[in-house]
Every structure is written in structure tokens, then in C-alpha cells.
């Protein structure tokens, strides 16, 4: 089984985001990059399948900046066999990213039996690339997946929807699966894994190499800015039991008469 995992490198969730003064993007110089947290579930699922299906290979794909290759190296240290990196810039939208990933799969010389991704990247939060890529490759896709069973190439996939309900899909391969937290418990990269990863093949291409042109950029971002700060609110001390009832009663009154939300 030829398994491809798409990973993205995103700022650590603790990062304070600072827009550039000219509003073209955010300041990236001091950011600590990590693998998009949802992509860890995709990598783990790929490695579980590789262990279960003899002769499988796991290729990790990434589009983005190449100065730092944290996400790709982590995936290979966890156990992926090889990597393909397409050098992208800050202005890639979901369509051009998906097209670059499609181009990277073609460059690998292998046909994809299964593509695994995270359900969304926690930087732009678009949730588009998996479905766009699947459509480009005429593949079915199931997103927000929290359950995965492989019965000889027939997949049973559980997709989480509103209110914690689950849609149970049966899908044939080739297929794209976008993974959510809860699907599995991602392994940590071991020290020998990290050492081995350094010797694994990592190919690098430009956007032009994989056939992405300016016409593939369909969406333009500008005016990056911090959200407006709220004026300071009202704070009440209810640590003293004697004040409890009056404080709560006052807040409920404010919610009705001042904020008008009840």
C-alpha cells in the first residue's frame, strides 16, 4: 500500500501572534514551529497501517518554508520512510497548496492508495486542502475522522459531526482521510528514530517543478491585524460567602438589563 501523509508546519499553540506592520502577514522570525497537531494523528495512522499491511511505504509531503523542516523530520523520526518538500511562500492559498501536493505525489513516481491528512491546520483554519486534493485526484474523502478500520482495502471510517454524532462511512481505496484528535495516540519519535531520520531520503522541489503557477492562487489576504481589544469588564469579589448571593444576583441583573443577553 502506498500511503502518503500531508503535514504542515504551524506556530506552536502558545505563540503570541504579531501582525507585520504593513499588514501583509504575521511576524515569523521568532516563531517556534511544530507539526500541525492534527497531522500527528495522520502520521500515526499511516504507521499503524504500514505495520499491518506488508510492503507498505509511507511518504510524508509538505508544502511551505524550507529553512525549518521540523514537521517533516518529526514524521520521518516517527517512522515515515521518505519525504518530499515543496518550497512554498506565505501567500499560498488552499487551492495552490493542494495542487502542489498533487504535483508532489506525481513526482514520487508512486500512485497513492491512501492519503492521510489532519482535519485542519491550526494556522489558517481553512479546512480546504484535503477535500480539494481528493477532488483533484478523483478520490473520495472523509473528514474529521475519529475511527479507522481497514478490511482488505475496504475502509470503515467514523466521521464526527455536530453534537458528537458519528457518520460511519464505507469507502473504497484509493481514498483520502482527514484525521481528528481521538483517532489514535501518536507515538513520540525515539532517539534511534531521530538518528535514522537523518539518513532517510528527502527530495525538494520548487512550486514551478510541481506545476503551480500564479493562476492557481485564487484567494488573496491583506490587512492582517489583531482583533479589537474589549474594554475592561466589571469584576466582583465573591470569595466571602456573605457576598455570594448579592454578587450573583447583581451579575444576573446586568446580563438581563445591561448586556441584554438573557
Amino acid at each position: 500500500m502506498n500511503i502518503f501523509v500531508c503535514v504542515k508546519q504551524v506556530p506552536d499553540t502558545e505563540t503570541k501572534i504579531v501582525p507585520r506592520a504593513d499588514g501583509t502577514f504575521i511576524e515569523t522570525s521568532s516563531i517556534k514551529w511544530i507539526m500541525n497537531p492534527y497531522d500527528e494523528f495522520a502520521v500515526e495512522q499511516a504507521l499503524l497501517l504500514k505495520a499491518a499491511v506488508t510492503g507498505s511505504t509511507v511518504t510524508v509531503l509538505r508544502v511551505g518554508g524550507v529553512k525549518d523542516t521540523e514537521a517533516t523530520r518529526t514524521a520521518m523520526a516517527m517512522g515515515a520512510d521518505e519525504g518530499i518538500l515543496v518550497e512554498g511562500d506565505d501567500n499560498l492559498d488552499s487551492f495552490s497548496t493542494a495542487k502542489a501536493l498533487k504535483g508532489a505525489i506525481e513526482k514520487s513516481g508512486k500512485s497513492a492508495d491512501l492519503i492521510l491528512t489532519g482535519k485542519q491546520a491550526i494556522d489558517d483554519d481553512c479546512l480546504q486542502v484535503p477535500q480539494i486534493l481528493a477532488q483533484m485526484l478523483s478520490m473520495p474523502s472523509v473528514s474529521v475522522v475519529v475511527g479507522f478500520e481497514n478490511n482488505g482495502g475496504k475502509l470503515m471510517l467514523k466521521r464526527e459531526i455536530e453534537g458528537g454524532s458519528l457518520e460511519v462511512y464505507e469507502a473504497s481505496t484509493p481514498c483520502l482521510v482527514a484525521c481528528n484528535k481521538g483517532l489514535n495516540t501518536p507515538r513520540y519519535a525515539s532517539l534511534p528514530g531521530i538518528m535514522k531520520a537523518k539518513k532517510k531520503p528527502l527530495q525538494q522541489f520548487s512550486l514551478a517543478d510541481v506545476g503551480v503557477t500564479d493562476a492557481d492562487r485564487k484567494v488573496k489576504y491583506s490587512q492582517f491585524q489583531l482583533p479589537p481589544e474589549k474594554p475592561a469588564g466589571k469584576k466582583f469579589d465573591a470569595m466571602d460567602d456573605a457576598k455570594l448571593n448579592s454578587v450573583v444576583s447583581e451579575v444576573v441583573g446586568l446580563l438581563r438589563n445591561e448586556a441584554k443577553v438573557i
Partner: peptide, 16 residues
């Protein structure tokens, strides 16, 4: 639209 889970906002338009 908010990005980075709402830590930042940006203007978005279509070019295609």
C-alpha cells in the same frame, strides 16, 4: 476572517 484560531484577523478577497 479570523486566523490562528482568532489570535489575528485578515481581509480576504478572490483573485481568480
Amino acid at each position: 476572517r479570523p486566523l490562528f484560531a482568532g489570535k489575528c484577523l485578515a481581509k480576504v478577497e478572490f483573485t481568480g
